[in-house]
Amino acid sequence: MHRFANPARFQRLASIILPWSDVLTAGLLVSGLYFALFASPADYQQGETVRIMYIHVPAAWMAMFTYSVMAAASAASLIWKHPLADVAARAAAPIGAGFTAIALITGMLWGEPMWGTWWVWDARLTSVLILFFLYLGYMALVNAIENPAAAARAGAILALVGFVNIPIIKFSVDWWNTLHQPASVIKMGGPSIAPSMLLPLVLMALGFHFYFVSVLLRRMRSELDLARVRALEDAIALNSEEAAA
């Protein structure tokens, strides 16, 4: 694991992966969009609005996936003091928040024609909304602490606390939902999904994953560069102080 802890080795690895992940992102998303918008049938119940699903469901998956990546990276950072793990967790957060925002916005845009209202306090939407707040809290905390090591440590603890609490929050929201919601909401997706709909769903989901890899690596790169910029600037400031003394 520590083999990749070296920033220079990471930079080399990133330059090998990035062209591939960029091409895969573009290819998967273009073909995914083709099947999502042209080559798939409208749903017999939901009509053309079913096409929102090809954005909404993969984005919701990515919202959870990204938080899991953050939690795993945070664990690696706390247990093995792995310096790249901090950078990864920190770099992943805005991407995850972005996917969560997409899931929420498309959820509203899907809810209006389907349920007749922009917002339904349905268990899934509510859980995603809470997940969005967890992302915002993480980003606010990490940005509020100036010392990079302290920020990394605090962020890692918060991400892990959030992660172990997610099942409990999810359970409580489901519990709350069964108390308050008459079960009239149309089930999203459902287990028996037609293959013609599964294909764009899978393509979009894979495209989002490679998008995540591409953007994450670029963000990690700039975090590492900025850390060295800070170190060099400190060294230069120190040198000029010594020269002045």
């Binding site: 609005t49 997409i102 498309t106």
Partner: peptide, 21 residues
Amino acid sequence: GGYAFYVWSSYGAALLILGGI
């Protein structure tokens, strides 16, 4: 199918957010 606003806003929002990031 009459749902242009909802469908295209969804794809537009996703493009805007992912492209922006």
